[in-house]
Amino acid sequence: MDNLIKCEGLTKRYGKNAALWNFSVEIPAGKIIGLLGPNGSGKTTLIKSLSGILMPDAGKMEIAGKEIGTETKKIVSYLPERPYFSSALRVKDTLCFFEDFYGDFQRKTAEEMLKTLQIDTNSKIGSLSKGTREKVQLVLVMSRKAKVYLLDEPMGGVDPAARDFILKTILTNYNEDASVLISTHLISDVEKILDEVIFIKQGKMALYKSVDEIRMEEKKSVDALFREVFAC
């Protein structure tokens, strides 16, 4: 089967700095993949490029055989680093937003998850804590029946118990022919839900391997290997 995500020779410069440099990768369907790298290594740039909100300076990208654009946005569910809803909105308004914007949004699923989290849909976004806002955003993003989930630091601001909830949410909601790309620093937390990891270093691919291979060959966890590869 054709790979779900294809990138070839992606390059993106910010002034003199290259955030991505000749970056190529092919990602199959049905995998949960960790996008790991230190700060400023190009993780967010890659995710934003794939979600179609950044144009790379050079290179080609395809998702499910289509160039990045309106068609791919229909099948890509993107969780940005920071929640983007206005604080004046109520949680239920964000549900309506997603319902209007995305044909694959499952409002019922979202409502059930919010209920489990004891988040009142009448609350204003502005009245929620940072962690709760992140949870709302993740619930929305994971309630789409998408082909590709791009999650940029999904656990940045939440406590360990909520991290478990987030991991569970990801595991429960992605379907078998979808792929999930998760960028994160919290490697030891996500390691057990990952199939494969991509190490990205100064905008270039440093490694792309399955978690099992790393553990088998290196006799250490991905977290330990990461600390070695990116030791300062």
């Binding site: 049905g30 949960i32 569970k168 057990k192 839900i193 990952l194 199939d195 978690v211």
Partner: peptide, 14 residues
């Protein structure tokens, strides 16, 4: 089972 163990379904399958 994957959910109960908190692991990737592919890993559990394997």
């Amino acid at each position: 089972m994957a959910l109960a163990a908190g692991v990737n379904p592919n890993t559990m399958q394997k």
